[in-house]
Nucleic acid binder design. Sequence first.
DNA 1: AAGGTAGCCGTACGTCGTAAGGTTGGTCAA
DNA 2: TTGACCAACCTTACGACGTACGGCTACCTT
Lengths: 237, 237
Amino acid sequence: MAAQPDAEPRPRVPLTKQRVLRTAVRIADARGITAVTMRNLAQELEVEAMSLYHHVPGKDQLLDGMAEAVVTEINTAVGLDATPPADPPPPADGWKAVVRGRILAAREVMLNHPWAPGVVGSRSTMTPAAMRYFDALTGQLLSGGLSPDLVHHGLHALGSRALGFTLELFQAADGGAPDPDAAEMMQQLAQQFPNVVAVLSAASHDGETTLGWCDDQAEFEFGLDLVLDGLERLAAR
Amino acid sequence: MAAQPDAEPRPRVPLTKQRVLRTAVRIADARGITAVTMRNLAQELEVEAMSLYHHVPGKDQLLDGMAEAVVTEINTAVGLDATPPADPPPPADGWKAVVRGRILAAREVMLNHPWAPGVVGSRSTMTPAAMRYFDALTGQLLSGGLSPDLVHHGLHALGSRALGFTLELFQAADGGAPDPDAAEMMQQLAQQFPNVVAVLSAASHDGETTLGWCDDQAEFEFGLDLVLDGLERLAAR
DNA sequence: AAGGTAGCCGTACGTCGTAAGGTTGGTCAA
DNA sequence: TTGACCAACCTTACGACGTACGGCTACCTT
């Protein structure tokens, strides 16, 4: 009973670190970071879990690789990988506009990978791609006339904002069921926390009943501009 | 062979949500958040793992409780739980100094619980203690003359900084082994990432060989002041 | 004394990361 | 042609995790 020669064509696409990482990112995008498990990942690649260890040292380095992949995506998005056009036109806009644009581009990439902030944030090591990104950013700030010291502090002040995301402390309450007695509850809330309710009700000047939630993008840009303007002012001193 | 009555004195301190949470915090402080496991926690309390479920619905709510506990600690640290002295003296300092002090106090608590930023940051829900904290903070900003809208944006701009921590993107490289050929590696680094190296070497004006690492506290205060100053300026407009 | 009940325990299941060793198919020297 | 070699891949198994489920015990109420 010899094995039939063509029982299974066996395309057998060879596994690759690239392929593993790309698939991991795809799983995370589609089903969340918790679905990125060695077994799931292997199944998606039509392979056994342990085979992954020939291309990735372990789960931790897999996450490192995913973070690296996202930052790399940012780098290409802001044109950091393309060789500059020989004579890069000096930024017609001020450094602020350039940096702002770059960071908002990074944010766009992050928004496509909701799991990325958590992963990038939890990795301690500075990957090469992140280095590349920060080196370019640093260059923009330096050539903008900021002193090295100010650039240093500025990067710290930006923090994760430099990579296009912030840790959202109050998650979108995302009111699925528009609670019928929301008004009543609101009053109870207002009694306990008058100040936040005052601020929140002022924030939603259009819809006044349900607390119209925040515009994340606008808030991000506000905070970013606050920092950039502050740096500019300090540089001018 | 009747059970001897006093084989074990059995003090049998009753389990309590308080006791469970406090112990969890103690474990996290001593051995890191990964050591906070239902079994470990139970062992520390001299109890079986499943007994914890009578006081905590599950691991997730345990973490919620731990976050809540830390924020509560912050609240008492800034005197938010003490009933105010009837006639609270109007803040002699400006609102900025008050807010600044409050946030730095929060930071001190956070520094005592290195695991707390991660846990607080990963919880989406706004716990009552956090609400209390933010309500007070909001009140300070409002009574400082900031418009509700500005307060709203300002809180977003502060983000986790309002609770005394930032997501540290580049972890302390903490050079245990002062690599003998650090100079050589530094040169290699300088070739690939000239800008960051320039900034970093400028940052450590005292020690010039090893990149003298950053003063986290100073950086935190710099970023905080940058935001507060920016808000003040916007309020004055 | 009878019955309820809150608090605790024992066992077990499914999932996770991964250590250790076996199998296979292709490459290349003799 | 053949046989050694060696990646790439698979199989099995272990320990740790969160937690469902069903007991047991000690105390309270009536």
